[in-house]
Structures are given as C-alpha cells and as structure tokens.
Design a protein around this nucleic acid. Structure first.
Lengths: 153, 153
DNA sequence: AGTTTAGTTCATAAAAAACAGAACCTATTA
DNA sequence: TAATAGGTTCTGTTTTTTATGAACTAAACT
C-alpha cells in the first residue's frame, strides 16, 4: 500500500488539525495516515515509508498511540506483520479524556471554596457557581456517553 | 498583599493541575495565584514577587492570559496600577473552547466520509457513527451552556 | 547455522517553548 | 526637568520536546 499525492496532502491537513488537539507532530500524522489509508490499516514499514520518518520515531510515536488506546493492530494468518489501525473506540476515548479533565478543575474549585476566607463573598460565589456549571457539563456529557455505549452493545 | 507558605504550596498544586490542561507553567501559576489571593486580584509587581519570576516572563504570560480572555483587570481611582483578576467568564470560556475543539474533528470525519472509497464499508460506517456521536456531544454541551448564559442575565 | 523481518532501545542532534536580563517606553510625580 | 512607576520589547540562554541513526534483539525463514 502506497498513498498518492492527494492523500499525502490530506494527511498533512488532518495532521495539523490533530496537532492543535495536542497530538505530537508524528503521532498526528500516523493517526491521519491510518484514517486516510485504503485499506484502513498499515504495517510499520508502510508508515515509515509513507510518512518519510525513521523507524525509531515511528516506533516511539506508535507506542504512544497504542498505550493511549487510540491505535490498535490486527494480524493476518501466516503473516507476522502487525497491521495498525485506528481503534474504533478512539473517538470515544478522546471525548472520555476531555470529560475526565473536568474533574480536576472541580476539585480546584471545591478546594478553593474550602480554603478561601469569607472576606470576598462575590468571588466565592462565582467559584461556587462555576463548580455547579462544571458539574452540569460533566453530567450532560456522561449522559450522552452512556447512551452511546448502550446502543453499541 | 503577600501570600503565605500554605498559599504558596496551594498555588503550586493548582498550577500543576492547570499545566495538565495545557497552561504553560508560568501562566498556570499566575492563574493559580489569582484564584488563591485575598483579595482576588494582584498587581503586576505582586505577581512577579509572589511567583519569583521576571518582569518579562510575567508580561508575556499575563498578556497571553489577557488575550485568551481568562484574565482581566480592574483599576481603582487615583491608582494607575492595574489589578489583574480571573475573568468571571473564565471557566465558561474554557469549556467553550473545548466545545469548539469538537468541530474540527467533525470536519475531519465528514471530509473522510466524502473522500474515502466504498471499499471498506465497516470503517466508513464507523466514521459516520463517530461523527454522529460528536454531534450529539456538541449539542448536549451547547444546551448546558445556553441554559447557563440565560440564568446569568 | 546464518539471514531476513519486524521492530526496540539508546545516545544524540535539532527544533521549539519557556524564561530571564537589560534596555526601553510612556505617563505620572516630585 | 528629573525621577519613578508600570509595564513592554528584544536578545540571548536554558529546558523540554521531537526526531534521528546506529546498534541491538527475538522470532521466523532458508
């Protein structure tokens, strides 16, 4: 499998978008490649070749994606190569992570309402409201996620 | 205004939490300071002093936070110092940004469903489903935000 | 037994981000 | 008009992140 010129450009575009969501550059391009490639999986060599990157870089970035659960691999009988593919739960995982980012914020807000004096009630009020807002947001997201998990099984 | 030992430690803890949500180190500590400080605002000098950072670094990070709309400032009559404070809309802004991060992903997914061949229907189906999931998530978040905006005015 | 395949690991180089020091600017104050 | 307050801007320096090449390994062929 070797990608064409148009696909190359598409991979760069998608890669840049993913970079903005905090993917390291090469990891972003690997994800992009796996999304664009037909069939939707690649061997290690196909990745190094198509992205013109070194084996070591690909190894590091790919393992990052594997550990993060964003990429997975399959194999074919009588072929010991691994065929890397985006995990179908990738997007769910990514959203899940965003939801999980909310809870540390809430912890901060709750800690502050505990430790701050009563001298600045307006500010304290604001912190309490923001905690409430985050709680609602967290809840709303969980509702969507749960519903989705149910329809999938 | 000068913070005490306990507050210093709290600022570091909160700072680290904020770093994990992609605040640069100093910007994270400025936010943390403004959250912990009593009163809940600081002058430029109070920031450099309490965080033991240079004027140039504080200037840069503070302007970043100002441009991002996370920090704001007030003044007092007959005092030309600016008193920096967390914008009460900070948390709303931060969530808004997370919601906005969803739409580029949806664009990717939609572009892919346009450009990919029909040869791998399972994969294409997955992309379509994920787009749907993201759409629902986006919608749910917007509902919460709108409701909140309304109760505020 | 030797070679090829499919990677990993380690030391290092290159690039980007973060911070600091010093000079600078503009509006007030003495 | 000189000095001070409240920053900003520019130029390095340090630190962190990202990518590489070369040597290595373990399994599977020949």
């Amino acid at each position: 499998m070797i990608i064409n010129e148009k696909q190359s450009l598409q991979i760069e575009r998608i890669g840049v978008t993913l970079e903005k969501s905090d993917f390291p550059p090469l990891a972003a391009r690997i994800m992009a490649l796996l999304l664009v490639a037909e069939p939707p999986y690649c061997t290690f060599d196909e990745i190094t070749d198509n992205l013109k990157s070194s084996k070591s870089s690909v190894s590091t970035s790919l393992n990052l994606l594997l550990r993060a659960g964003l990429v997975d691999y399959r194999t074919f009988p009588g072929d010991r190569k691994r065929y890397f593919q985006v995990n179908s739960k990738t997007w769910m995982e990514m959203i899940k992570r965003k939801v999980e980012q909310i809870s540390p914020f809430r912890s901060i807000l709750e800690e502050l309402t505990q430790t701050r004096s009563a001298a600045y009630p307006d500010f304290n009020q604001m912190l309490a409201e923001m905690d409430e807002f985050y709680a609602e947001m967290e809840e709303a997201m969980k509702v969507v996620m749960d519903r989705w998990v149910k329809t999938k099984k």
